[in-house]
Design a protein around this nucleic acid. Structure first.
Length: 193
DNA sequence: ATACCGATTAACT
DNA sequence: GTTAATCGGTATA
């Protein structure tokens, strides 16, 4: 059910990004449980990836969590506004991470709508909006993904490889040749029953 | 101490 | 399609 170190601490972050599709991300924050099925991810391949915060072995107070053992959260602020949620992978010392870009709402949909407070706009599509819907903030940087605050579990959803699409990552044009790598994975919400 | 910029979003034209 | 919003991280001094 709940994903564990065996899942997170593997070496292939691109494979993990693909396998996180269809898993359920759950938070229990502010006394409310909210969750959604992950349907878009991006892999960030550590020191050799120009798009990664840890490219070249860079280590700062912000990205320190990327160097922790796989299975916890790396949350940081982008554009001064948006809290972006990443899953740390690989063993301690190897700074791999997977950015969660979109979920399909499951539990606590009313709560998520209230938190978003922007009717007519997607409630959980986009890395900044899903964190708002789930109430994930930079204060959750470093928390375990085994709960009790944030959890990722296998909801038993089978995704045929045919439904999974891949392509270049979003907003990383500055990364030169690495901007073209097919490290983004997603599937269309309609293909989920 | 100061300046520049970003793994984005929403509200515009 | 364009652009303002908004502030921590990082580099430079």
């Amino acid at each position: 059910m709940m994903l564990n170190g065996e899942f997170y601490q593997r070496d292939d972050v691109v494979l993990i990004a693909r396998e996180l599709l269809g898993k359920e991300l759950v938070t229990r924050i502010g006394g409310r449980i909210t969750s959604g099925i992950i349907n878009e991810t991006e892999a960030y391949n550590g020191v050799v990836d120009r798009a990664s915060h840890a490219f070249g072995g860079k280590r700062t107070p912000r990205n320190e969590q990327m160097y922790a053992a796989g299975g916890n959260a790396y949350v940081y602020l982008c554009y001064g506004i948006h809290h972006l949620f990443n899953v740390v992978t690989n063993v301690a010392g190897i700074p791999h991470a997977v950015l969660i870009r979109s979920i399909i709402p499951q539990q606590g949909i009313d709560t998520m709508r209230t938190r978003r407070a922007t009717p007519g706009k997607p409630t959980t599509t986009g890395p900044g909006t899903l964190t708002q819907a789930l109430a994930i903030r930079t204060t959750h940087n470093g928390v375990s993904l085994g709960g009790p605050t944030i959890m990722i579990r296998d909801a038993g959803i089978a995704l045929p490889p045919k439904r999974i699409m891949s392509g270049p990552r979003i907003g990383v044009d500055y990364a030169g040749p690495d901007a073209l790598l097919p490290y983004r994975f997603h599937f269309h919400p309609d293909t989920l029953s």
